[in-house]
C-alpha cells in the first residue's frame, strides 16, 4: 500500500484539498463568498487558497447572500464553475429564490439548453453554542426541489471525493458540511479520486438493525452500534452520502436483511429527510420488517443557546442506542 493511502487529513483539509485540486485541474473553477480569501472563512477551511490561486479566483464578497448566489448562477450558465460559499446553512433562507426559482429550474425551463454547473457549499449542525440562527440543518428544504442535488459527507474521505464530483457535475449541487466535523481526522488519499452521487456507503455491516445516518449522525450511529454490540445487537450503519440522488436500493436491501431500521438526521424530523428515507424503506421492505421504521431528528424547537438545553435537541449515541434497543425488543 502506498504511503499516501494511510495519510490522515482533517475534514476541513480534505475539503480544501478537493477545491485546490479541482482549481488546478480546471481554470474555470472559482470560489466566492464572505471572507473566503485572506480569512479563509471563519472555519479556516479555505486557508491559503487565495495565495495559491489569486484574488481573481477566490473572491471576497459583501454580505449579500442572494446577490452573490445569483451571480454564481449566471457565472455557471456562461462558462465558469463557481463554488459559492454560504457561511452558515441558516443563511440559505436568503438565497432561496436564486436556488429554487433560478438555479434549479434553468435547465428544465430552457428545454435543456442552459446548464448551471454550480456548487453551493454550506454548513449545518447544532451543539456549537451558536443559538437559533447559526445552528440549523435545513438540507431537507433543498432535497424537496427538483433540479437540485444534495450531498452530505460524513468523513474526510467522502468529503474530498464527493466535492470533486460536485464540482464536475453540470447541475447545481448543494454541499452540506457539519461545522462540528471540520477538525475530525480521517484517511484521505493524496491522489485524485471521486465518489459517485447516488451511491450509499455501508459504514458498518450488521445483521439485526439498520441505522441510516447522514453527516455527523453517522458517527453518532457508529457509536450507538458499538453500544448495541455490548447487548448482543448487530447494527448495520449506512450513509446515503447524497440525499438526492438517493440510493434507495442499498437502503431497502439492508432493511430487508435486518428487518428493522432507524433513520437519523440532524434536520427537523417533521416533513424532513428522515420521513422521506423511512418511507422509502417502509415501501420497499414492508414485508420483511419486524417493526415500524423509526425516525430521529432535531427536536421541533428553535435551537436554544443554553448548553444543557441545546444538547437535548439532537440525537446522541445514547438516544440512538436506547431507540434501537427498544426496537429490537431488548428491554
Amino acid at each position: 500500500m502506498p504511503e499516501t493511502a494511510q495519510r490522515e487529513l482533517t475534514f476541513a483539509q480534505a475539503i480544501r484539498e478537493a477545491l485546490a485540486e479541482e482549481m488546478w485541474r480546471d481554470p474555470r473553477v472559482c470560489i466566492f463568498g464572505e471572507d473566503v480569501a485572506e480569512a479563509g472563512t471563519p472555519f479556516k477551511v479555505l486557508s491559503g487558497l487565495v495565495e495559491e490561486f489569486g484574488a481573481e479566483r477566490v473572491l471576497d464578497t459583501p454580505i449579500s447572500e442572494q446577490g452573490f448566489t445569483g451571480m454564481g448562477v449566471g457565472a455557471a450558465m456562461t462558462g465558469l464553475r463557481p463554488v459559492v460559499d454560504i457561511m452558515f446553512g441558516d443563511f440559505l433562507t436568503l438565497t432561496m429564490d436564486q436556488l429554487v426559482n433560478q438555479a434549479a429550474k434553468v435547465h428544465y425551463m430552457s428545454g435543456g439548453t442552459w446548464k448551471v454547473p454550480m456548487v453551493l457549499r454550506t454548513t449545518l449542525g447544532a451543539t456549537r453554542r451558536s443559538a437559533a440562527q447559526h445552528s440549523q440543518s435545513l438540507h431537507a428544504w433543498l432535497c424537496h426541489v427538483p433540479g437540485l442535488k444534495v450531498a452530505m459527507p460524513s468523513t474526510p474521505y467522502d468529503a474530498k471525493g464527493l466535492l470533486k464530483t460536485a464540482i464536475r457535475d453540470d447541475n447545481p449541487v448543494i454541499f452540506f458540511e457539519d461545522k462540528m466535523m471540520y477538525k475530525q481526522k480521517g484517511r484521505v488519499p493524496a491522489e485524485d479520486y471521486t465518489i459517485p452521487f447516488g451511491v450509499a456507503d455501508v459504514k458498518r455491516e450488521g445483521e439485526d438493525i439498520t441505522l441510516v445516518a447522514t453527516s455527523s449522525m453517522v458517527d453518532v450511529a457508529l457509536g450507538a452500534a458499538k453500544l448495541l454490540e455490548g447487548i448482543g445487537v448487530s447494527a448495520e450503519v449506512i450513509d446515503p452520502r447524497t440525499m438526492w440522488p438517493l440510493d434507495e436500493k442499498t437502503l431497502v436491501e439492508s432493511a430487508k436483511k435486518t428487518s428493522r431500521a432507524i433513520v437519523i438526521d440532524e434536520g427537523y424530523g417533521r416533513y424532513g429527510v428522515t420521513g422521506e428515507v423511512a418511507s422509502v424503506i417502509a415501501e420497499g421492505a414492508f414485508f420483511n420488517l419486524e417493526a415500524p421504521v423509526k425516525r430521529m431528528g432535531a427536536m421541533h424547537v428553535p435551537i436554544p443557546f443554553s448548553p444543557p438545553l441545546e444538547d437535548v435537541t439532537v440525537p446522541t449515541e445514547q438516544t440512538v442506542f436506547e431507540a434501537a434497543r427498544k426496537l429490537c425488543g431488548k428491554a
Binding site: 481573481e56 446577490g67 451571480m71 449566471g74 456562461t78 465558469l80 436564486q98 426559482n101
Partner: peptide, 23 residues
C-alpha cells in the same frame, strides 16, 4: 439567458454573466 417570471429574478444571473465575461 432567459426571461424570468420572478420580478428582478435575473439581476444575479446577468451580473454573473458579466463576471464570466470579465474573468
Amino acid at each position: 439567458l432567459g426571461a424570468n417570471a420572478i420580478v428582478c429574478g435575473s439581476a444575479g444571473i446577468a451580473t454573473g454573466a458579466a463576471l464570466t465575461a470579465k474573468r
